[in-house]
Amino acid sequence: MISSIGSQSDADAFYALNEEWISRLFTLQEEDRAVLGDPFGRIVGPGGDVLMAREPGSGTVVGCVALLAYPDAVFELAKMAVAPAAQGRGIGRQLIAAAIDRARALGGTRLFLGTNSKLTPALHLYEDAGFGRITRDRLPVADYYARADILMELRSDGAL
C-alpha cells in the first residue's frame, strides 16, 4: 500500500530509510540532512509530496520516495529507498509508478532525477519506467548533488 506522508513517525521512517543507504554508499551531505529532517517543510509545503510504501496489515513503512517541486510544474523524483529486508519484492517499481502518477496529479509537466552508476538496480527500474538520460545542462537547478553521475527525465513517450 502506498500513501502520502502523514505523521512524524512517517517522517522518521523517511529519514532512517534514506540515511541507511546514503551513509552506506556515499556521504550524507548537509542538504540531505536538511531535506530528510524536514519533509513537511522542505518537500510537502512547497508543493511536493513524500510517498510511503507500507506493509499490508501492519502498516510498517518499508519504502519511500519524494517528489520535490520546482518552478514551471517541474518535479524531481528523489530520496527513494526500500528497506533492505523488503528489497526484491517490487516495492521500488510500485513507488516509481506511484510517484509518476502523483506528479501528474500535482500538474507536473516534467519529471527528472539524479542517480549514481553504483545503483544499478535503481537505474534499471528508472529505465523500465520510461526515464532516459539527460545532460547536466537540462537540469532546472545549477547546484546539484555531485554524487549524481547519471541524470534522467521521463521521456516524452512516458509524458506527464
Rank of each mutant, 00 (worst) to 15 (best):
E55P: 01
S156D: 10
G47C: 13
L95P: 03
L154W: 01
A103T: 07
A99L: 11
Y15L: 02
M52A: 05
I100G: 04
S117I: 06
V61Y: 11
G41P: 07
K118F: 09
T27E: 15
S3R: 15
R147C: 15
F112M: 09
L77S: 07
Y145M: 12
P140D: 11
I96F: 00
G47S: 12
M80N: 05
R54L: 00
P121A: 00
L106Y: 06
Q29F: 14
R54D: 01
R133P: 12
E55K: 08
L119H: 10
T135H: 07
G41E: 01
G47N: 12
L28M: 11
S4E: 14
D101I: 06
I100E: 10
L77R: 01
G88S: 05
G63P: 02
T60R: 14
I150L: 12
V62I: 09
L111N: 06
T120S: 13
V65G: 01
I2Q: 11
D137N: 13
V141K: 10
V61M: 14
R42Q: 10
E20Y: 09
G45N: 14
F131Y: 14
A53G: 08
C64Y: 01
R133N: 12
D32V: 13
L95D: 02
D143P: 15
S117P: 00
I150Y: 03
S156A: 15
F131G: 06
R54Q: 01
D157P: 00
A16E: 10
R24T: 09
L77E: 05
A148T: 13
T115F: 12
R104N: 07
L139G: 02
E55D: 10
D143F: 14
E127C: 07
A98F: 00
L139P: 00
A105I: 01
M80I: 14
S58D: 10
S58Y: 02
M52L: 09
R24N: 09
A146Q: 14
M80Y: 05
A85E: 12
I91A: 09
